[in-house]
């Protein structure tokens, strides 16, 4: 089939991973799922980066016994993805550590409840009543993505 050459399939995989990741972040309320959504989104972005100069049939950019291949793959995206993966691992570990502490403090990992308890804590510390829902700064949420996250926690 003409439309489904290798390039297309790989790009569909990359964008598909990103879409799944974004759906995870946007749709779910549970922080663990959101964190995994970020990991998936990153994986998609990494694959996209690898595909940026992908050539079918290119060999690994390594010289073995003075045998220089006719076409070697571009080493730059590989190095970049290596960097991006390590960064992703560090941030993932950090997110999990924070999630453990948040769970211990608030007893929940539901994004809405965490947000409510956080508001409560800030307001308590400031010594004011928690702003009621009508007074909540809803103005910052007008773009689709944002409004979803906002509603998650607001409604």
């Amino acid at each position: 089939m003409d439309i489904l050459d290798n390039n297309t399939i790989l790009y569909i995989a990359a964008f598909g991973l990103m879409l799944i990741g974004i759906s995870g972040i946007v749709i779910s309320n549970h922080l663990m799922r959101i964190i995994f959504g970020i990991a998936l989104l990153e994986a998609g972005a990494n694959l996209l980066l690898l595909l940026s100069t992908y050539h079918e049939g290119a060999s690994a950019p390594i010289i073995v016994a003075d045998n220089i291949p006719t076409m070697m793959a571009d080493p730059v995206p590989q190095a970049l993805v290596l960097t991006a993966i390590v960064i992703g691992v560090g941030i993932l570990a950090l997110a999990l550590s924070l999630a453990i502490r948040v769970q211990r403090a608030y007893g929940t990992l539901d994004m809405r409840e965490v947000r409510l308890k956080l508001e409560q804590e800030i307001s308590d510390e400031a010594g004011i009543d928690m702003p009621s829902s009508s007074e909540k700064p809803d103005d910052i949420a007008k773009v689709p993505l944002n409004s979803v996250v906002q509603q998650e926690s607001g409604s």
């Binding site: 922080l31 990153e42 991006a84 941030i91 997110a95 924070l98 403090a105 965490v114 804590e121």
Partner: peptide, 24 residues
């Protein structure tokens, strides 16, 4: 404080989302 952990985690979620988009 527990509030600082929670706000960091929420900040991390938004930042992680943004960073992955920037990478794309």
């Amino acid at each position: 404080t527990s509030g600082s952990f929670a706000s960091t985690l929420r900040y991390l979620v938004i930042s992680g989302f943004g960073a992955a988009l920037a990478l794309a």
